[in-house]
């Protein structure tokens, strides 16, 4: 179908079980047609947990008394090698927001190193200017994930009381700046649990539709990280598994060719059950603390609910009739050295 806000609203409105089943049948068919029987695998590497923001829901909040660490180029290279040896070929590099010590100048050599070792390098970092995104792309980054956290400005303002992240618009415009700079893949999303999911889903769909029409050469993904355990004193809205599934189905039907990512925030059983219903990419073996692939001396951002190893996840995928895709990119599609 062609996306329309009204049709999307119907997909996310309250449904009976039999209507939900119909959505699932449709979503399953579309997923198979467009993505086949494959699931892409990726792994995150947290480079730093230093942060000058104070997001109320986040383990890296600057008021949290945690052990802070930023990997040096050598340390990052060692972690990259461990990940490579596990069999991954697709890496997501993450940071908090602390531009003074963990800025673009810090990232460029690490991206260059990662690009030598992996076919595909993506970033999940602080918002940047167009020029900064250009530098990151030139270094070898092909993908960027940046979640708006919430599209509700009032909730956004409450959740981000201080630090540069307070600026809703600068964050909201980040994907567009990255696309202007030539980013090939952009991941959008919001944090589930901050406010009503239907409202968030609606705005995400509109955001995605706008970017897809205006930056038609780019590939898009969406993801819906869900807060399972809120920090003490933070009032979050839990979203049921049923609603969570409906939202994934709605995005699959409205945007049949957009990848949907499910992280290890979700448990193994739910992740396995959602394969083929819309989800196209999953992470595996994630550690959410810097240096976590060799030791555990720093603190993590959130608790992982699917701790299976890559080989256990591959076995589960194969048992469910899916071919795990480790490599689906070429550094040639990222490097800038024209022959013509």
């Amino acid at each position: 179908m062609t996306y329309s806000a009204s049709a999307f609203s119907r997909l996310i409105s309250p449904l009976s079980d039999s209507e939900l089943n119909k959505l699932a049948t449709n979503a399953k068919h579309l997923t198979k047609q467009h993505f086949g029987n494959t699931i892409q695998l990726y792994i995150p590497l947290y480079l730093s947990n230093e942060c000058c923001n104070s997001c109320l829901y986040c383990g890296f909040n600057r008021h949290q008394n945690i052990k802070r660490q930023t990997l040096s180029l050598d340390e990052a290279t060692k972690q990259l090698q461990i990940i490579k040896d596990k069999g991954f070929d697709n890496i997501l590099l993450l940071t908090g927001e602390h531009k003074a010590s963990v800025g673009v100048d810090y990232l460029v050599p690490i991206i260059k190193q990662a690009q030598k070792m992996f076919s595909y390098v993506a970033l999940e970092i602080f918002p940047c200017s167009t020029e900064e995104y250009s530098s990151l792309i030139s270094a070898g980054a092909s993908g960027l994930t940046i979640y708006q956290e919430t599209y509700n400005k009032e909730v956004y303002s409450n959740m981000h009381p201080s630090g540069p992240k307070k600026d809703f618009s600068f964050r909201f415009d980040s994907p567009e700046r990255a696309l202007k700079a030539g980013m090939r893949k952009v991941g959008l999303g919001f944090l589930l649990g901050l406010t009503d999911w239907r409202e968030e889903a609606y705005f995400l769909a509109e955001h995605l539709d706008y970017l897809m029409k205006n930056y038609w050469k780019a590939d898009f993904t969406v993801s819906f990280p869900r807060i399972h355990k809120a920090p003490d004193g933070l009032d979050t809205k839990t979203i049921s598994d049923k609603d969570f599934v409906q939202m994934i189905l709605a995005f699959r039907i409205a945007f049949p060719k957009v990848g949907i990512i499910l992280s290890t925030r979700e448990n193994a059983e739910l992740r396995d059950n959602l394969l083929g219903l819309g989800v196209t990419q999953i992470s595996a073996e994630s550690k959410t603390n810097p240096g976590g692939y060799s030791d555990n001396t720093s603190d993590e951002q959130f608790q992982v609910n699917d701790a299976r190893s890559l080989s256990e996840i591959i076995t589960a995928l194969e048992k469910n009739g899916f071919d795990p895709v480790i490599k689906d990119w070429s550094t040639i599609l990222s490097s800038i050295s024209p022959v013509l």
């Binding site: 050469k217 070429s330 040639i332 599609l333 050295s337 024209p338 022959v339 013509l340």
Partner: peptide, 15 residues
């Protein structure tokens, strides 16, 4: 597959 320009396709072919 994945090439968005002649240039990218050529480089993939060379590889």
């Amino acid at each position: 597959a994945g090439a968005q320009s002649a240039d990218e396709a050529i480089r993939l072919a060379m590889l």
